[in-house]
Design a protein around this nucleic acid. Structure first.
Lengths: 196, 196
DNA sequence: CTCGGGTGTGTCACCGAGTGCCATATTAGC
DNA sequence: GCTAATATGGCACTCGGTGACACACCCGAG
């Protein structure tokens, strides 16, 4: 019996409950709409108390984004690890392209994306997350050895890259997910490539 | 006695009350923080009922952004009115540059900008507004005669331009507002100028 | 086996944002 | 001055979110 089994038994069941809760909630959201589904509805459907719901998720919105959470550190590290002579724009292209795949492998359901897109509160939350990530990426870009990037340029490039991802996502939705995301992203980054 | 005076007597007093309410609220927000200031506080300080507050502002957040409201139509029209042979990127540069000035002439107070920047709820709301505006601009860009812009490219350029404005705003804040916004914007647009 | 202590859960009370409803005061237009 | 539209206040309610408390459970130590 390995150590992690003992130490992580509680953690495992917790994750399981959390996942079950999230799945159920997402189903309700997609079916009846986000605003129309109350936390009480979710809790009741899951057979737990309203209070317990908030012990698993800090907020109703977080149910939708909870799984994606802490990719930020990984992305930032991935950027710092890129070759020093690589152009910042290329770094962003490569790392964010990979990151995008991770995001959508975890959350592939187009219905959920549509839900986010059509719910102001969720869109706002998404922006918030993206914004936090943007800040981390900007710092990471400047942390690269010999980058010589001033804060403004780093910020500018990162913001533009984020915009590219965002636009690619919307285009992907316009095609009902029947199009290759990677190609869209490549095209977007090629179109916007800044002056050296 | 001009026509607007007769037709708009109620409207005028309403605007006055609204402005007074907003000014008071902003002072409280800056002084004590946004989250710490309840709607009851504002209403009580203004000598009106909580209910009346919500008749002037649809939400607490809107107090901060209310004045800026319906610039969207003006911006969209300004874009449609640009010469047909002007590059989309140039159109965005010119129109958004002017729009930026209008925004910050109405809301010049750097303390308020800081308040927004440091309050997640307000940042989220700002993003939401910017997002709506972005959609309008994208459509306006494609509406130009002979634009020949596909939705994706229009979306991409607009999103990138919005990112440029955003980054310029942050840089401006980094310098405590002691720098020329217009120059920042020009520089940002020059840096990001997309391939033709 | 029993006695704790840590942990998960439910319940209750509370807060703040926002909304609908109704009674009332104010004011515009005849 | 009278009537009707409008502005306001008060009340009750919903919903998201939090703190406090009590209870049940499971664990290892004695």
């Amino acid at each position: 019996m390995k150590a992690e089994d003992r130490a992580g038994l509680r953690e495992r069941t917790r994750r399981a409950v959390r996942a079950e809760l999230a799945e159920l909630a997402l189903r309700l959201f997609v079916e009846h709409g986000y605003e129309e589904t109350t936390v009480d509805d979710i809790a009741a459907a899951a057979g737990v108390s309203r209070r317990s719901f908030f012990r698993y998720f800090p907020s109703k919105e977080e149910v939708v984004f909870g799984d994606v959470e802490d990719l930020a550190d990984q992305v930032a590290d991935a950027i710092r690890v890129r070759p020093a002579d690589e152009e910042p724009w290329t770094v962003l292209h490569v790392v964010l392209g990979e990151w995008e795949e991770k995001i959508h492998s975890a959350q592939r359901n187009p219905a959920v994306l549509r839900l986010i897109e059509s719910t102001p509160a969720l869109r706002a939350r998404l922006h918030q997350k993206r914004d936090a990530l943007r800040g981390r990426i900007t710092d990471a870009l400047r942390d690269r050895p010999g980058s010589g990037l001033d804060p403004f340029t780093a910020d500018l490039l990162t913001a533009c890259a984020a915009a590219a991802l965002d636009a690619a996502g919307r285009e992907w939705l316009r095609h009902d997910g029947t199009i290759d995301r990677r190609e869209l992203i490549d095209h977007a980054f090629a179109t916007l490539a800044p002056r050296p």
